Amino acid sequence: MIQREMNRYFCPICLIFGIIGCLLNILLFSQKQFRNISCCTYFLAASISMITTLILGFGPHAYSVNHPNPVHTISSFCKIRSYVAQSFMMIHRWLMAMACIDRYMVSSINVKLREFANPNVAYRIIIIIMIIFIILPLHNLFFLDIKNGMCVNSIVAFTIYHSLFTIIFGGFLPLLIMITFVILIRHNLATKQQRRQRDMYKIKGSTVRLLNSRDYQALMMLFVQVIFYILSTISWMIFLIYAPFGRRIHNKSNNRIAIEKFFRYITEILVYTYPTLSFYINIFASQTFRDVLVNILCSLLTSRERFWYRSRLSLTRTQTN
């Protein structure tokens, strides 16, 4: 009952708000002031990947309210959906991790490291990540199938490999990279500020801030992204650790089977909340993003008013003639 109501209301709402958010992310990161910033290049590519993830993640659940869920009824859809969803999910997570590395290089005092933080390098890394995670999840096409009304690995031994692959490449490594480089970014910024304070302690009677506005907003945005990544992923990682052992238990009661299915459902839904909230996290954490969004919306409204004014003026002239 709870699962059905979540499919009816929660999943469609997340799908709608998530797609709108990703499209706004794409619109923002495509602006002229962000095109030459390599970090924004990663965010832009990640937002495109997130749209596919959201459609394949929430779409089947929303569809299942009035129809049988194709994930658990159509073998080919089970395989393809799991493969594509995992592939794009891995892509956007690793792109976010690369964005953290990029910010670290930008904040570094090492000139050679800063040279790597440019859009041309970012484009190459994006292509490499896409190729890697289009190839690595191919096992889903061969070993996934429908069993007992669930889309699961058909071979118990392969469940262990799938769990380890997902935990390491989809959870642990991206998370480790994000946390490590956010800490290193903070260290770099503090080191830079300490050098400035050697020669200048006060400016016009005010103490020098540890971080300037732009650095602070970038760091806060990454920090909040990492927090939401942990919250949305940790329960899914726990389920993946349990899954191989749970498959070895025979003669399960109906209650236990129902609980396992519901836990799997909840943890999977939580995973997809991260791409859903990505845009709203950026807007919450960055004043710059809020200002750019307001400017874009104002420009669109102004353009629309000009369009209607010209249309009415043209119509008036036509009627006069």
Rank of each mutant, 00 (worst) to 15 (best):
R124S: 11
H162Q: 13
C78E: 10
I167T: 00
M1L: 14
N251M: 01
Q217N: 07
T159G: 15
S76H: 08
W94Y: 10
W308K: 14
C11K: 02
Y161S: 12
N140H: 08
S286Q: 01
L222C: 08
T267E: 00
L23C: 08
V294R: 13
H72Q: 05
Q3Y: 03
T288V: 09
I266S: 00
A218D: 02
N282Y: 11
N251I: 04
A190T: 11
L23V: 12
R186K: 13
L315T: 11
Y104W: 09
S232H: 01
R195E: 14
V106W: 06
S213I: 15
I155A: 08
T52E: 07
S87I: 08
K32H: 14
I269W: 01
I296Q: 00
K79Q: 12
P68T: 02
A157L: 15
Y83W: 10
I269L: 05
T273N: 02
L175R: 08
N7F: 00
T318V: 12
K252T: 00
S30L: 13
I155F: 11
H92I: 13
P137M: 01
A62L: 01
I281V: 04
N148V: 10
M221Q: 04
L164F: 03
S107W: 04
K32I: 10
L95W: 05
F34Y: 07
E305L: 15
Y104M: 10
T267A: 00
L15C: 04
R114V: 05
I269K: 01
I132L: 11
A46D: 05
R290Y: 01
F34Q: 03
